[in-house]
Design a protein around this nucleic acid. Structure first.
Lengths: 207, 207
DNA sequence: CCTAGTGGTGTATATAATACACTACTAGAT
DNA sequence: ATCTAGTAGTGTATTATATACACCACTAGG
């Protein structure tokens, strides 16, 4: 059988790309160069190619913007309201990407702190809200938070990152207790140098 | 702009439909009448119509099989591996549906206990595994489990349903304590009649 | 009147989450 | 040399939550 009598929708992948910088959780938005929503802020996105896995589309969109091949990528949800794109039926599979703090993004677009987002085109505000909610929810019970970190990090840096993602301060002693009791990370035995403070133990993920 | 130079993929919705019956969590599978995978067990599914919201597609597929308009529906994930359908590129948005125990399903297909599933066509085993995992995971921290229940129920019936979904026995006193402390449900003040046991208090959701 | 089957109840223990404050070390400025 | 700013590192008491566990009562049906 073949029986596909319906006009096929276009299928895109949109990316909610997060990074923590200057103490804030930020998301990458680009200013659309063309209609619809020309000049408005939107999530980076692109059409799914013919023989391309969805995750591959996501990675292509991400690395088309910069050399970000190392990012954590995870499917978020699919948005398919019939009128979400004025060009016609476009179904978008949203992914979120997480860049570590050392990853220097060199593409178009700007990073917006998630507590100071601009208006966006399409239904991208909804996608962003869903992404932030999921990200915060998964922080405590998955290892997703480590995707914001470089391979080696101190507990102080880790805590600052967690606080930026959650948008709330955390108690230092409780944070260290709970992180260490997870068994996810282990000490490298080395200590950080530099900084106007005592050297801090450097940890890395143990898995 | 229009610029959609790529052949468009077909887009379907596949449904992982759950119900608890005879003490087991079961999922609805239908035997495909046609190629590909003719005669094999698959999830009910169908193409997304031109101006149809994805959730509407899911509901249409569900109620095409029976009058199941009351089911809980929730998006699960999107499966888009390039070779997942031998007919060509087909991207499937999987939903899961939950029927309450009193819902009499009268369509084609059979209910399979999730601990005794047959081989399935396409990548539907993967979709099913994802659905079961998500369902069990969400049971404790969402109200999804109540979708298996009719409007009014006893704590005994609720516990049996939970046990069927999780596939593990639960302690009666602890179960009652934790359910009641959630504040989700309240007593109707009435008691069940019938059965070779004392009347049980009837509860309903308080939301 | 006996049996099978479920309704309903409480306590003790272990584990996890929270609240909370001080000293020590380093870099850099004066 | 000394001072200052900034972070590293540490422990305990309290509260809340999760777990383990056993008995009597009531109803329907044989």
């Amino acid at each position: 059988m073949v029986s596909y009598d319906f006009p096929r929708p276009a299928v895109t992948v949109d990316l909610a790309t997060f990074q923590v910088s200057r103490g804030k959780l930020r998301i990458l938005l680009i200013q659309r160069p063309e209609s619809p929503f020309a000049g408005e802020w939107t999530l980076p996105g692109g059409f799914v190619h013919e023989r391309e896995a969805l995750q591959t589309t996501a990675r292509r969109i991400l690395s088309a913007k910069a050399s970000l091949s190392e990012a954590h990528l995870e499917q978020l949800a699919t948005f398919g309201a019939p009128e979400r794109d004025p060009r016609g039926r476009v179904i978008s599979i949203a992914y979120f990407a997480i860049l570590d703090v050392d990853c220097a993004y060199e593409g178009p677009g700007d990073w917006f702190a998630v507590d100071a987002l601009p208006e966006t085109g399409f239904d991208h505000s909804e996608i962003i809200a869903t992404a932030i909610e999921r990200l915060r929810g998964k922080l405590s019970y998955t290892d997703i938070g480590f995707a914001f970190m470089p391979a080696e990090f101190t507990l102080g840096a880790l805590q600052k990152t967690w606080e930026a993602v959650l948008g709330t301060p955390l108690d230092k002693r409780n944070f260290r207790k709970s992180i260490l009791s997870r068994g996810d990370i282990e000490s490298t035995g080395r200590k950080s140098t530099g900084g106007a403070h005592p050297p801090a133990m450097i940890y890395h993920r143990s898995s």
